[in-house]
Simulated scan of single mutants.
Amino acid sequence: MLKIYGAYRSRATRTLWLAEELGLAFEHVPVLQAKRLPDPTGADAPINTASAAFLSINPMGTIPSIDDDGVIVHESLAINLYLARKYGGALGPKDLVEEAAMLQWSLFAATEIEAVALKISSASTLAPSEETRAVIETAAKSLVKPFDVLEKHFADKSFTVGDRFTVADVNLAEIVRYAQPHAPLFEARPALKGWLERVQARPAFKAMWAKRLAEPAAGPV
């Protein structure tokens, strides 16, 4: 059986959402970030990213990871592309051209958006101040170009690749959402805003998000 390692309040949401979309039976192993625990190496500590048991699965100690009947895969976007390719049906690529597009948009999100958008997500959890507002405004300026690219892309498309919801929407949406606390970025881009609202309205996303909210808070990701 597929095992998914990672807390809901982590990048594991990407894989847990996709698993809900695919209707996969899986075992969720709730590996916590070591930074969430006062003594992650203590004898009574729950399994976490510093636990020997998890490091035997992923020596980098990052989440998520999966074990798909002996196939170990790390890195959330790679995991999702693998699962969609193997189990995805309409959520996976129908041909090499679609597979290239799914890879492109996933890597675009990771390289052009994620690090900057995370600054918005992190700053938005702090008490408002001139410093946090400056961080958010600076990050928002850096997102203008990639978000304009997405606005143009979704101007005549309902989804990221093809004419249907796919793994590319999961991978892209789970990174773009880091910038959601800064509403002006989306109010100025109605096509992008509409796409994100559309994919986040899906029952599988809502099911995943409810489980995330039920987990004790642990930072913005």
Score class of each variant (00 low, 15 high):
residue 107 L to N: 12
residue 31 V to G: 09
residue 25 A to Y: 07
residue 50 A to S: 14
residue 11 R to C: 06
residue 107 L to I: 14
residue 219 G to F: 02
residue 134 A to Y: 00
residue 81 L to K: 04
residue 142 S to K: 14
residue 203 P to C: 06
residue 142 S to C: 03
residue 164 R to S: 05
residue 221 V to K: 04
residue 178 Y to S: 11
residue 19 A to N: 03
residue 70 G to M: 04
residue 186 F to E: 10
residue 154 F to I: 04
residue 134 A to L: 08
residue 28 H to I: 07
residue 138 T to C: 03
residue 190 P to D: 10
residue 15 T to L: 01
residue 102 M to N: 06
residue 130 E to C: 10
residue 165 F to P: 04
residue 42 G to A: 15
residue 67 D to Q: 10
residue 38 P to N: 11
residue 119 K to L: 14
residue 53 A to R: 13
residue 129 S to N: 13
residue 70 G to Y: 01
residue 136 I to H: 00
residue 9 R to E: 06
residue 53 A to Q: 13
residue 23 G to T: 11
residue 41 T to V: 14
residue 44 D to V: 12
residue 150 L to H: 05
residue 181 P to V: 11
residue 91 L to H: 01
residue 64 P to L: 12
residue 64 P to V: 15
residue 120 I to D: 12
residue 192 L to T: 10
residue 34 A to T: 04
residue 182 H to A: 13
residue 59 P to R: 06
residue 203 P to G: 06
residue 35 K to F: 08
residue 168 A to P: 09
residue 220 P to R: 05
residue 91 L to S: 00
residue 162 G to Y: 01
residue 144 V to C: 10
residue 33 Q to L: 13
residue 111 T to F: 02
residue 157 K to Q: 08
residue 16 L to K: 01
residue 182 H to R: 07
residue 114 E to P: 01
residue 147 F to G: 04
residue 212 R to Q: 11
residue 35 K to Y: 09
residue 189 R to F: 05
residue 8 Y to T: 11
residue 140 A to E: 12
residue 202 R to C: 02
residue 15 T to H: 03
residue 205 F to T: 14
residue 210 A to E: 15
residue 4 I to Y: 00
residue 46 P to Q: 13
residue 217 A to H: 05
residue 198 R to C: 07
residue 14 R to H: 07
residue 174 E to M: 05
residue 191 A to L: 02
residue 196 L to G: 11
residue 19 A to W: 02
residue 68 D to T: 00
residue 70 G to R: 09
residue 66 I to M: 05
residue 211 K to W: 01
residue 66 I to E: 06
residue 154 F to K: 05
residue 28 H to L: 04
residue 118 L to V: 15
residue 129 S to A: 13
residue 210 A to L: 07
residue 25 A to L: 07
residue 34 A to R: 04
residue 71 V to I: 15
residue 138 T to I: 00
residue 141 K to L: 10
residue 70 G to D: 01
residue 118 L to T: 14
residue 166 T to M: 04
residue 93 P to K: 05
residue 221 V to Q: 07
residue 200 Q to L: 07
residue 197 E to C: 07
residue 126 L to Y: 05
residue 214 A to M: 03
residue 161 V to L: 05
residue 108 F to D: 11
residue 154 F to T: 09
residue 29 V to K: 09
residue 174 E to Q: 09
residue 192 L to Q: 10
residue 138 T to W: 00
residue 110 A to L: 11
residue 117 A to H: 04
residue 182 H to M: 08
residue 171 N to Y: 02
residue 197 E to R: 12
residue 30 P to D: 12
residue 174 E to C: 06
residue 193 K to L: 13
residue 65 S to T: 11
residue 73 V to F: 01
residue 191 A to E: 10
residue 117 A to K: 02
residue 89 G to W: 03
residue 69 D to N: 07
residue 40 P to V: 12
residue 131 E to D: 14
residue 2 L to I: 10
residue 12 A to E: 10
residue 129 S to F: 02
residue 93 P to W: 01
residue 206 K to Y: 01
residue 155 A to W: 02
residue 43 A to R: 15
residue 169 D to G: 05
residue 8 Y to F: 09
residue 133 R to E: 15
residue 71 V to R: 14
